[in-house]
Design a protein around this nucleic acid. Sequence first.
DNA 1: GAGCACTGC
Length: 679
Amino acid sequence: MPEEAGFPPAKRFRPGCGPPGGRVLMLLTPAASPYPEAVERQRRSLPIFPARGQLLAQLRNLDSAVLIGETGSGKTTQLPQYLYEGGIGRQGVIAVTQPRRVAAISLATRVSDEKRTELGKLVGYTVRFDDVSSEDTRIKFLTDGMLLREAISDSLLRKYSCIILDEAHERTVHTDVLFGVVKAAQRRRKELRKLPLKVIVMSATMDVDLFSQYFNGASVLYLEGRQHPIQVFYTKQPQQDYLHAALVSVFQIHQEAPSSQDILVFLTGQEEIEAVSKTCRDIAKHLPDGCPSMLVLPLYASLPYAQQLRVFQGAPKGCRKVIIATNIAETSITITGIKYVVDTGMVKAKKYNPDSGLEVLAVQRVSKTQAWQRAGRAGREDSGICYRLYTENEFEKFEKMTVPEIQRCNLASVLLQLLAMKVPNVLTFDFMSKPSPDHMQAAVAQLDLLGALERKDNQLTLTPIGRKMAAFPLEPKFAKTILLSPKFHCTEEILTIVSLLSVDSVLYNPPSRRDEVQAMRKKFLSSEGDHITLLNIYRTFKSLGGDKDWCRENFVNSRNMMLAAEVRAQLRDICLKVPAPWSLRTTSQASIRRCLAHSLFMSAAELQPDGTYTTTDSRQPVAIHPSSALFHCRPACVVYTELLHTSKCYMRDLCVVAAEWLYEAAPDYFRRKLRATRD
DNA sequence: GAGCACTGC
């Protein structure tokens, strides 16, 4: 039997680590509460409430602070209201950033309900495609990416008096870049004697010292959480086969625990999840009498929305829900009623190699932070139990924290945005966790090839094209593709293609129905590649008025298709605003391909005599991804949108091009390449 | 010959 281990003890609010605030506290207590009684009772019951006076007294005097609070402390919904009620930051807007759209929207909705105001008035939100805020908005929830976009047009973030960076421990690229942008804005506003900017970093445990040091030794305030106790068990022996171990654990729990207690299992990807789900269902059919029945539900991001929703429905009486999920259930989706968590300790994660420009998607060990996050999913409403399918000794060897995303992704977009904000000396930008110099250089090289950079007085700045590229919410190479399209008279088509590439795949591929999928898809396949194939699908979708039944029959994800249409409209608006030249629809698909060749010339591959492919850039052996329209073809020369290393190094989203188009697109670049291969 | 973690502008 696995042995029990303790959950890290909750940190308590530490009084007295700031200036005494008794006098101020009196002023803050409202004479009569404007809230209805039920809301007031609920607000007062939150762990953050007793700390209210003290928090305000301290925050009033601090430029920056780090607020540590566990799930359920009420910090995200209450703190912005406390600040507003306390008259802190009333000269401007109080911003609260979130890594995810749904969180920003639902938090704004809840806080405006508590305030009994109409959403979009006092309390509002801003996310892509959806701005529910107004002149009156004083508390604004937004995605961190959205605030970053705003910083491009005003790097001092002048409309904000206070910026609360929430969920900072997740360390998304956007949050990490914001740390630097907000810190610089704060300093600059002080120098210019403008309205001061208060910065509050909110995080679950961990990273505390890093955050505090980065913000010039900012005070750290601790809040008590309301997490229920969780018993954690480890295996006695290391497990060779975590899938088998997961199955054994699920059925062990299933035979012992009351059927109302649900199980959440963490695996790494779609294929694995579908396979384990099927095995679970098969075994569940042959269980002894008296054993409860079992409802097995897979959960991963590419699963159609309707199927994702099933995890929120209760199972019939006497039936246990077993949810088999990727790390989508770690943060993005919270399911109630989970009593047991089975953690395989594995995750599929992307790494980026700046030398080859290669993204590697590999199964690896989770970090300790991630393992605690997973365990925490068992204690949302009541005490929970977590089975870790690894030994305590193995756990001790896990990395303490997940490597921040900024150190393992392509930095071209980040660099373009920083340059658009006119950040001086971008290469030495004050990141909390610095990416390696190689990493930055790779991004410089990429932007340089796209014609986005120029050097003035030893400083990197943007060319006019570079500035236009930054206006698009896209990877720089896609922005460049759009800006090149008028030259080839195919802006309409390129807008469609780029939109489809920038949303999650519109093609739904259930592994169990592979043959059916292939048969249905045949009618859209183009021998010219995936871009033209996508264009064919979009055109049919549009001509049928976005028919959902058609989508289902043709294994097209209608949600992503609608999203692509929304993206397309946004990109078209930006083209008109920038302003980018425009062109009428082309009649030739060759000109679309030529446009792609001109913008993706650095991502090209050539057929070798032995039938394999090699990239023209780094002579890397690559293969055509099995999902590609060209999987069974052997074109002499292609450009691709993405290289992904899984079991092999695969090119994804390919387009057939003529080799001479590449040469005409970047003659200098190819001359250099040619010389390099000769040496 | 055979496959794709998760967000976000």
